[in-house]
Design a binder for these strands. Structure first.
Lengths: 199, 199
DNA sequence: TGTACATCAGTGAACGCGCGTTCACTGATGTAC
DNA sequence: TGTACATCAGTGAACGCGCGTTCACTGATGTAC
């Protein structure tokens, strides 16, 4: 099987090409700007071809979500095994900013078939990795791994989301650097046993 | 001016009615499911009427964003003046979950005219309120108000976003309760005064 | 009080467009014999 | 080695639909005199 089949009736790897074109469109103009006809046109293929591979738009976005959860799971696993929860959090931010199309789709489950078994499996695995790394966090404050995990998840998810929507651009050049500095404020303060909150 | 003008050629308060219908649609099906024709139909008015008030869809969503930033600014101001940064964060989560349509639109600036002066003014004021309340946070770890403000913003924004996308539903009944417990984990510290609020 | 006029809000018919979907088809590939 | 056949990938014409937009219009309201 040749890697690149040119000027052939069969495309060779149309499925991958369609996915890549979709990711480009989503990153530029959002998941809702996607149309199968436009995708076919960008890929140089007839407008009915995408339906062969994905059925419909939800099918295509389901494939994007699966791929996204799998890659995120991989990257969290790698970061978490080497280091700790902080590294996993930074890997989360890195993934989101490097794969904005996947990230946007993954967290808008109404766009795709969230009950697809492959989606559920990939998401469950990613979630397990995330909470697993949270357990490595020194539980200084007596918080459970779940509490730490959810808090950290909210923090990095919010940072990634705000970054991607252009709300933090003035604060840093690199979102991962920003995440590092914020995480140290939130979880790693030097005098972490400071005065109580006034309320 | 009667509050409700019925069976009249003039609607009475079509602008508000269109906004409310739009908010309902957005909350149910997302900002991209919005169409001016559908909105007109829901409001019982001809399909060309919305253009009279908003020009086009971006104009309508600009009005939604302005209203959202103004209300959020009000609520943060009220919460922040009474209490502290934590209360403002909880008010942020409360606003997002009670006004999901506004919240979704506000943070997708590509949907509306983000450079509209009224949008910029409302957003700037909200931002000032947010960072202002951060300054009331005891800087236990020597972090600047900006660092605390951004960190807190990321945390509550992430929590609200994940909640609205259905990713935290299994963890709590009320997102504000969840935010309270997480905030104490993140910013609290070991002996941060008082027993941890058990979930 | 009444009349004339300006202004504004909403109408309804018409248009062109891009979309998803269907379906009979054709070209290419692989396999059985 | 060659032939026949099944399978699969992609084509292209056709369809109906909902959309935004335009535009001449009409009904209601407010104001000047």
């Amino acid at each position: 099987v040749p890697a690149v089949a040119k000027a052939s009736y069969h495309h060779g790897n149309l499925r991958r090409a369609l996915l890549d074109a979709a990711l480009a469109v989503i990153a530029e103009r959002g998941p809702h700007a996607l149309s199968l006809r436009d995708l076919a046109s960008r890929t140089g293929v007839s407008h009915a071809a995408p339906a062969h591979h994905f059925g419909d738009k939800a099918g295509l976005l389901t494939a994007v979500a699966i791929e996204g959860y799998e890659r995120l799971g991989d990257e969290l696993e790698q970061a978490g095994s080497d280091g700790d929860f902080l590294d996993a959090g930074l890997a989360y931010v890195r993934f989101a900013t490097r794969n904005p199309a996947h990230f946007q789709v993954m967290f808008q489950p109404a766009l795709y078939r969230a009950d697809d078994p492959a989606v559920e499996a990939a998401r469950a695995r990613t979630s397990a990795v995330l909470y697993g790394t949270a357990a490595t966090m020194p539980a200084a404050s007596g918080a459970s791994a779940t509490e730490v995990g959810v808090g950290g998840w909210c923090l990095v998810h919010g940072l990634a989301t705000l970054w991607l929507s252009g709300n933090l651009g003035a604060l840093a050049d690199d979102p991962v650097d920003l995440a590092r500095s914020i995480a140290s404020t939130a979880f790693g303060g030097p005098d972490a046993g400071g005065p109580p909150r006034s309320s």
